[in-house]
């Protein structure tokens, strides 16, 4: 008789087996003294672990939990606004719901105007629908990776913030790449890569845009003023943080002036 593997016996004890496998183990153990002994030994070892750990634990008082929460709350002072809102339980933004409502209304209007052939309202609605649908597709949650939309000789992608928050991440850019950042009035954040940087791989989702790799060139980032919180990070290091109206420059500037600031991707 082939014995049940040690790992399978353990998985049986831990409730990790599917019903059929579970029943097979039970049938085998009922008929096999050696496997029954193995199972008892594993059960005994698990009991020793559970009871000895419990005896050695230092209990945590409810006061300790409350105090720990106060400390975490105090730490959150330096966090982005959205994190603080989560901490204080404030309601998230309803932007996505509003966008859906707008599309619904446009849909209703389009149906109504269909009854009037040649109506100029109909032509306007067609354009408005396309624009809104494009915004909505950008607002669909979940990351997507792939080639970026071509813009001239470069490549660019834009995303809408999620709950007013947008995070732009550059991973492994060429150290010589210059990163131009400016605040814009629109709703969306945009990243455009030119020159060698246009070979970077773009990944985007609602509130998140990432570039990976790319040769030396220029990356132009537009951060919407309307974003409640925005960050630009390069290889895990924050370069710029926008928290409400407050914009903090966290890496040395290579250049600045006019309407933009410029970093070097390989900032010291």
């Amino acid at each position: 008789m082939e014995h049940v593997a040690e790992g399978t016996l353990q998985a049986y004890l831990d409730g990790e087996l599917a019903a059929e496998e579970n029943a097979a183990v039970e049938r085998h153990v009922a008929a096999c003294v050696e496997c029954a002994a193995e199972l008892a030994s594993l059960r005994g070892a698990a009991y020793v672990l559970a009871t000895s750990l419990a005896r050695a634990d230092q209990p945590l008082a409810s006061d300790d939990v409350a105090h720990a929460f106060q400390l975490v709350r105090a730490h959150a002072g330096g966090l982005p606004g959205s994190a603080r809102r989560w901490l204080t339980g404030a309601a998230p933004s309803t932007r996505s719901a509003l966008l859906r409502a707008a599309l619904f209304l446009l849909g209703l209007a389009a149906v109504a105007s269909a009854a009037i052939p040649g109506s100029p309202v109909r032509a306007w609605l067609a354009g408005a629908w396309q624009e809104a649908a494009s915004l909505f597709s950008q607002a669909t949650p979940g990351p997507r990776a792939g080639p970026a939309r071509s813009v001239g000789d470069g490549a660019g992608v834009s995303v809408l913030p999620r709950d007013g928050r947008v995070r732009i991440v550059l991973r492994g850019p060429d150290a010589r790449t210059r990163i131009h950042v400016r605040l814009v009035d629109g709703e969306a954040a945009a990243v455009r890569a030119d020159g060698g940087a246009a070979t970077a791989r773009f990944t985007s989702g609602l509130g998140h845009l990432e570039l990976e790799g790319g040769g030396p060139g220029a990356v132009r980032i537009e951060v919407p003023r309307a974003a409640v919180w925005a960050s630009i990070e390069v290889d895990g290091r924050p370069y710029l943080l926008k928290d409400g109206a407050d914009v903090r420059i966290l890496a040395p500037l290579a250049d600045s002036g006019g309407t933009e600031v410029v970093f070097r991707a390989g900032a010291e």
Binding site: A5, E6, G7, T8, L9, Q10, A11, D14, E16, S41, L42, G44, A45, A46, V48, L49
Partner: peptide, 14 residues
């Protein structure tokens, strides 16, 4: 491999 690794670690601990 988790089941096997857990089983062996449990025995060593006990």
């Amino acid at each position: 491999s988790v089941g096997t690794l857990v089983a062996r670690a449990l025995r060593r601990f006990a």
